[in-house]
């Protein structure tokens, strides 16, 4: 142990707690931002594919690449895709959709059930760009919450969605969903939908931290339930963790980073984890890594990420 370590606090593993330091080099910075960059690239690429197919005739061998929007679409002319939550709402209005929609919903549902339900939220949903921007600005401007909404509220909204679908005979969330408004109007022509997006931005920025995505959105709640058994997880290598809590500071769902639970399971097991990868890149000890759920844990010798602790 060196002298610096004696001055610092020690983690439960006896190692010094080192704070995350943003690297000064561009390469280091890009490495910290890498999942953010991947996520934005994917989000924008998906919207661009829809837009390009619709407006610029993008195709592969005369077959349109992807027609429709994130509610339902057809990939390469024959693979149906559909929003499983929207399809469920339609069924709750007591209307049975055609097989094509059911198959599309099953494909999407299966995909997210495997790689993590809320991968939708942080890797695909276009609202994520708005709420991330609000969260970043809120941190920059040191804005405190106006009031606190429960993180469990979204499950009530989820139940309400299905209840109202049955009562009113309209797919309740689809008729007010700012997510659908956003991608629909980007792809099919702009109306007043941007006002809803502005609403989410201001709400998240000034009223409640992670208000929309983390507390209200029933689609996120739906995918949190879907992802409970998913295979792709954030692995947690307990012996290396010094409880520096850098991961909790960046996590939009901090409740999922329960260290004692994570140490037991060897991974973050909550369905509310969006697999966004923010925690991975700020962890100075490389404790957190993407991992496959059923891989037996490998206790590698503790290795740290010098770039993140020295700021080089």
């Amino acid at each position: 142990m060196n002298t610096a370590a004696k001055e610092n606090k020690l983690g439960p593993n006896g190692k010094p707690v080192r704070p995350f330091v943003m690297p000064k080099s561009m390469r280091g910075k890009l490495s910290v931002w890498r999942y953010l960059i991947y996520r934005r690239t994917l989000q924008i690429t998906i919207l661009l594919l829809f837009y390009g197919t619709a407006h610029w005739g993008w195709n592969i061998a005369e077959t349109p690449i992807i027609v429709g929007n994130l509610s339902a679409s057809k990939l390469l002319g024959f693979i149906p895709l559909a929003d499983p939550f929207a399809s469920l709402q339609i069924m709750f209005t007591r209307h049975m959709p055609q097989n094509e929609l059911l198959i599309g919903a099953a494909i999407v549902l299966g995909f997210y059930a495997l790689i993590g339900g809320r991968v939708w939220c942080s890797w695909v949903c276009p609202i994520n760009m708005v709420s991330d921007l609000a969260a970043w600005l809120r941190k920059r401007l040191h804005i405190n919450d106006n009031f606190r909404l429960s993180k469990q509220l979204r499950y009530s909204v989820l139940i309400l969605t299905l209840l109202l679908s049955t009562i009113t005979g309209l797919a309740a969330f689809e008729w007010v969903s700012p997510i659908s408004m956003f991608h629909r109007e980007l792809i099919f022509g702009v109306g007043m939908g941007w006002t809803a997006i502005l609403g989410i931005f201001l709400f998240d920025l000034l009223v409640q931290r992670d208000g929309w995505c983390g507390r209200i959105c029933p689609l996120g709640a739906f995918y949190a339930l879907v992802g409970k058994l998913a295979l792709l997880r954030i692995g947690f290598d307990a012996p290396t963790c010094t409880h520096c809590c850098e991961c909790i500071k960046v996590c939009p769902e901090p409740a999922v980073l329960n260290f004692s639970k994570a140490a037991q399971q060897g991974m973050i097991i909550s369905g509310e984890c969006t697999n966004c990868g923010r925690c991975i890149t700020v962890c100075p000890e490389d404790t957190l890594q993407f991992r496959y759920r059923f891989k037996t844990s490998t206790h590698q010798p503790a290795h740290s990420n010098p770039r993140l602790t020295t700021g080089e």
Binding site: T53, A54, P64, V67, G68, N69, S71, A72, S73, K74, A82, D83, A86, S87, I90, T93, R94, H95, P97, L101, G169, L170, A171, E174, S180, M181, R184, E185, I187, F188, G189, V190, G191, M192, G193, T195, A196
Partner: peptide
């Protein structure tokens, strides 16, 4: 009423129309 309940608002009909007849109603 049945149409409003069943339509998922995906716009595939809009894209299928060769005459650009159809529109998806934006908000407002």
């Amino acid at each position: 009423a049945d149409f409003n309940a069943s339509c998922i608002k995906c716009g595939q009909c809009v894209r299928a129309c060769p005459y650009d007849t159809l529109k998806l109603a934006p908000v407002g």
